[in-house]
Structures are given as structure tokens and as C-alpha cells.
Amino acid sequence: MILTVTPNPALDVTYAVPGFRPHASHRVAEVAAQAGGKGVNVARVLGALGRPARCVLPLGGPTGESVRAELAAAGLDHAEVPIGGDTRRTVTVSDGTDATALNEPGPVLTATEWDALLGETARHLPQASVLVLAGSLPPGAPADGYGQLVALGRQFHLPVVLDADGPALLAALPARPTVIKPNAVELTAATGLPDPRDAARVLIRRGAESVLASLGPDGLLAVDRQGAWRCAPPAAVAGNPTGAGDSVVAALAAGLSGNAGWPAVLPDAVALSAATVLHPRAGHFDVPAYRRLRASLTATRVGGLAPLGL
């Protein structure tokens, strides 16, 4: 079982608005609402791949009730930490070519509620093969909150995937996550370096064991102490990119669960990410497109990069 922790879950509302443009009035063609947050999306994708997954997440208020009901309706295995605040909402406006996201900050977690989230996570770790930590930290969470969760996973000798950015990511590096998954912008923001490979190596020196970087239409770059690998889709894919990174994490977690290496993980992650862009909602993917792309993709080792060593 792959365990995902989403410290700041949401009710994800997606509006389909063909021809959307700012500063104008629009008629919404379709509305969809589902339980969300990065870790929830990862678990949803894993379930569609036939991989058992369980979500740990704090929920509260009327929006939390809606999230809880949708998790149950979707058959997603989950463990809830009750909180006093109301779970946040996110709104994504998709025009069929791209998307605009509006993300609320989320409720403030008290110290007691944060400790309860740690305790609930620890309760499920003995049954887990991989721990996935994903999304923003909610207001009130400790600055090293992800570092605490990474350390928990390491106590149980589990691979830990961390998908976070900014101070939350940097504060977690000393706990030595197995893989971190920033995008190119986040890499530059964290290190000040424009080249993704150079930036990834800096974060490895700071504590990450490896880096899987999302480069948008240019695919994925994986960097560890032995070198680097690349894999990219044959062409750019238009649609709703919301959740594409979560599908990358799902493929990564599934690969780690089976001890797969980068040559197997990267093509799967690229295919799954592209197939997710083709679906209107995060946490779902176009199955025929995924299978077609997966059969056509290979990963290549990137030259000119000496091993980091110990």
C-alpha cells in the first residue's frame, strides 16, 4: 500500500469555460467538484492504475464534509484527522487548451491538530511500501512540517517522495527525502540557478537523495548521485495541466514500490502526465493515450554530468 499525506486538502471545483478570458463575463459549460489536494490526486491516479493507496488528510467544516463524501463515493481509502477549521476550496477554470487555478490558503491548524496528523500518519506507516508527501503546508503548520513527516517515513525505512516547494521544501531537505519533485521554476527559486541539472545537484548536496524535475512540455529530468536521465513526450499536449505533476508522483511512487529504476519510471511518468493533461479533471487520465504514449517512450542518460559521489 502506498500512503499519501495531504496536509492541506481541498474541494477541487473545475469550471469548463470555452474561450475563457480575464475581465469578461462567461457562461460555464460544465462544473465538477471532487476531493483534491496533491496527495489525494496521487492516490486517485494510483487507484486507477490498480495500485492500492491510502490518503491521510485533515478535514473540517462543511467543505470537509463534502470532501469526505466524495472520497467515500469514489472508493478512495482514507484516514481523517478532524480539525476545527473549514477545509479549503480550489477553483480551476479550464478552456480546453490551458487552465487558470485559484487556490485558497486553507484553515489554520493548531499545534494539537498537527501532532494528530503526525500520529495518524505513523499509525499507517507499518502497512506502507512508499510514503508520499504532497502539496502546500496549511497555515499554522511548523516550518519544518515536511521534515517531520520525512523523518517519520525514514524511521520506518520507507522511500519518501516529497512534492513541495519554497521554504517547506528547503526545510525538509536535512531529513533526506528519497525523491523530491520540483518543477523548473521551483528549482530556480530554491537555488537561484537557471540550469535544472545544476539546481538539482545543489538540492542533492543539501540532503535530497534524488530530484525528479518537471520541465513542462520538455518532459522530465531525473538527477541522483550517479548522473542524470531525461524523457520527453513526442509533442506538446494541450488541455488541463492541473494534476499532471500529481500523476508524475503517482508513477514515481508506483516505481519505487516495485524497486524500478529511472529507465522504467521516467517513460511511465511522462506518459501518465501527458494523459492527465488530456483529461478535464485532476486525478484522472486518458487511458488509451497513456497506453499509446507509454509504448513509444524511452529514457536516455544525459551526458556531461559526472557522478556526485559521497
Rank of each mutant, 00 (worst) to 15 (best):
A143R: 14
R154N: 12
Y146M: 03
L158S: 09
G145F: 06
V161Q: 11
V150S: 05
V132R: 11
S129G: 15
Q148P: 01
G145R: 01
A151K: 02
P139C: 07
G135C: 06
P139H: 08
A151L: 05
V130L: 13
V160L: 03
H157E: 14
S136P: 01
D163A: 04
Q148D: 05
P142G: 11
V130Q: 15
G140N: 12
S136W: 00
V161I: 15
P139Q: 08
A134H: 05
S136Y: 00
Y146Q: 04
L152M: 11
P142K: 04
L162G: 01
L158F: 05
L137F: 00
L158I: 07
D163Y: 03
Y146G: 08
S129H: 15
Q148I: 04
R154A: 13
A141H: 01
A134D: 08
L158C: 12
R154H: 11
L137K: 04
Q148A: 15
V161A: 08
L162M: 07
V130M: 13
V132F: 12
Q148L: 15
G140I: 10
R154T: 13
V161P: 05
L158N: 08
V150A: 00
F156Y: 13
P139T: 09
A143S: 12
S129Y: 03
Y146W: 02
G135S: 05
G145T: 10
L162S: 06
G135M: 00
G153A: 05
A143L: 14
V150Q: 03
P139Y: 05
G140F: 02
G145L: 09
L131W: 06
S136V: 03
V130H: 15
